[in-house]
């Protein structure tokens, strides 16, 4: 039985959340109205900065040409593939580096250097090696997400409580058992955090890859739009990216909730 005070508290909390959401929604609507108004009044140039109506029309025409979902799907597919490969490889390599201190010492400076390099510089090299196709986009995305994922998971592994390792050793645990009972489950939250960070890294990598080499995808819409100076297409691309980000955010939150429970 909930007390009156508690019910009031819950109500206040809910009302507050609704207020925050409505304000966010209102801000977006205000932005769109202002944008449309300023272009209608020719205060800003709709040829350069487009307008909500034009973006809407572009989306509709993309839809009518059966291209809209194709572009979204291709980008989504590239993100998901690089996300899955990046995380599996990241976890695998971090685990190998945890098992083998020597390898970890050897690779440490390489990882740091590769991490600090701007990956886009590898673009031409990747295209030459993997071809002007989807593979290059995935490799570009991996290059960005994998290194960060290895560094953060390896750091998490090596900062595990030394006394807990000692405790397991006092039970006679071997290295594999320490990994199984302590290192992996003890760092679950940090691994999930890295996965979460990786979603945005894969996003950045995929779009960067698409800007360099692609025939389809949202990045392609943006680069193609800029080449033919069709700013409606460029801004439509950005809007689609925002929608995709929201979808990915919802998916990640959903999986995070499942894993917490």
């Amino acid at each position: 039985m909930k007390s009156k005070g508690y019910i009031n508290y819950l109500k206040r909390k809910r009302n507050y959340a609704i207020k925050v959401f409505l304000t966010q929604f209102f801000l977006i609507i205000l932005f769109l109205i202002l944008w449309q108004f300023l272009t209608d009044k020719k205060i800003i140039d709709s040829f350069l900065l487009s307008s909500p109506k034009k973006v809407y029309n572009t989306i509709i025409s993309l839809y009518k040409d059966n291209n809209l979902f194709n572009h979204i799907f291709i980008t989504f597919y590239e993100i998901i593939i690089s996300f899955i490969i990046g995380n599996i490889l990241g976890l695998l390599i971090s685990s190998i580096l945890w098992f083998n201190k020597f390898l970890s010492k050897v690779f440490d400076p390489f990882l740091t250097i590769i991490n600090s390099l701007p990956k886009v510089a590898f673009g031409p090299l990747i295209i030459v090696c993997f071809g002007a196709n989807i593979n290059s986009i995935i490799i570009m995305s991996l290059l960005i997400s994998l290194i960060i994922s290895i560094i953060s998971i390896t750091n998490a592994f090596s900062s595990s409580d030394k006394n807990k390792i000692k405790l397991l050793q006092s039970f006679g645990a071997n290295k594999y058992q320490i990994y199984k009972y302590l290192i992996l489950p003890g760092n679950k939250n940090k691994i999930i955090e890295t996965f979460k960070l990786n979603i945005s890294m894969c996003f950045v990598g995929t779009i960067m890859g698409e800007l360099l080499v692609s025939k389809e995808g949202i990045g392609y819409l943006i680069i193609y739009g800029s080449q033919i100076f069709n700013m409606n297409l460029v801004i439509t691309g950005v809007v689609l990216l925002i929608i995709l980000t929201i979808i990915l955010y919802i998916i990640v939150n959903y999986f995070e909730k499942i894993s917490r429970n």
């Binding site: 409580d161 006394n163 807990k164 000692k166 405790l167 006092s170 302590l182 489950p185 003890g186 679950k188």
Partner: peptide, 13 residues
């Protein structure tokens, strides 16, 4: 030999 440490070192998960 059993070994108990300064903190309880229970595994929270």
């Amino acid at each position: 030999i059993g070994y108990m440490f300064q903190s309880d070192l229970l595994f929270e998960w």
